[in-house]
Simulated scan of single mutants.
Amino acid sequence: MSTSFRFKQFTIHQDRCAMKVGTDGVLLGSWVPVSEEVDTILDIGAGTGVIALMMAQRSNAEVIDAIEIESSAYEQAVENFEASDWGDRLFCYHASFQEFFQEIEETYDLLISNPPFFKENYKTQDVDRDMARFEDALPFEHLFIGVSRLLSENGKFALIIPFKEENTVVDIGKSVGLFPQKITRVKGTPTSKIKRSMLLFGFNNVSCEPDELIIEHDRHQYTDSYIDLTKAFYLNM
């Protein structure tokens, strides 16, 4: 089985990462609005570094930082950054987000996170994988407190979560002065249940009407909207 994942403009090596490239990260990196004004970006919980690399491809941001707590994933993200065409704009910190936001003075125009969100008590024997998958390492409350400190005045914060957590996360956001400005709910097929929510937060309290994204009509028969969203990245789109 191949340990690398090739996109149109970069390759992700992931043999030392507990969490491999998945639909959630690619969806979020494709979906997040990136305006011309965005000059500084932070990827929280970088894993392989895929979202930061997508931001480098999609934007002219001078600074694209990432944070990764797990040693092997951190090292691999750094290697993936250095092997890309945008190595001079990408930097990864080896730290927890809690440490990072208490020490960093700068703010960012765009924060992005595909956070760990398995609250269940079930754990595996793989500590690295558990750290990547389970919310204990970075509770949503900690995430939003840190984001509220690191976000520039007109900055935005994007994340992808299980749909069942949407109301909880919106409430946590409001408690630190961050409000949803765009919500897209994701379904695998037209008849399946909503599985994920992608949310964009900012400091302005604006009205926000959720929309919906369906990935497939049928097995491997992708919808036009999903193809349009991801075709800049996936080789076969």
Rank of each mutant, 00 (worst) to 15 (best):
G177F: 04
Q9P: 00
K119D: 13
K187I: 01
L90A: 11
E153N: 13
L178A: 06
D218A: 14
V147Q: 05
Q57D: 07
D24Q: 12
Q76C: 11
V147H: 02
L53M: 15
D15Q: 15
M54V: 09
S30E: 01
P162M: 08
D15T: 05
S175K: 12
N114Y: 07
V21H: 12
I112E: 01
S30N: 05
R16S: 14
L27S: 06
I44V: 12
D88T: 08
I183Y: 03
E37Y: 05
T40D: 06
A137Q: 11
E212V: 10
E166Y: 02
D15M: 09
M237I: 00
A132W: 11
Y226N: 02
F163R: 02
I215W: 04
M131S: 11
R133G: 03
D109C: 09
A83Y: 02
N80F: 10
E70C: 08
I44N: 06
Y74N: 08
E106M: 08
W86S: 10
G155F: 03
V78Y: 01
G45I: 04
F134Y: 11
S71E: 15
G155V: 09
V147S: 05
M54N: 08
F97D: 01
F201S: 07
K195D: 03
C92E: 03
S84H: 09
M54P: 05
T11D: 13
N114D: 07
E120M: 05
T107Y: 00
S2E: 08
E120Y: 01
Y108W: 09
F91W: 13
K164A: 15
M55L: 08
D171L: 11
E75A: 14
I12L: 11
N204M: 09
R219K: 15
K8Q: 12
V147K: 03
S2W: 07
Y222R: 04
N60W: 00
V78I: 10
D128S: 15
D24T: 04
I12T: 02
A56E: 04
C92R: 07
E212N: 04
D224I: 08
H13C: 09
F118S: 04
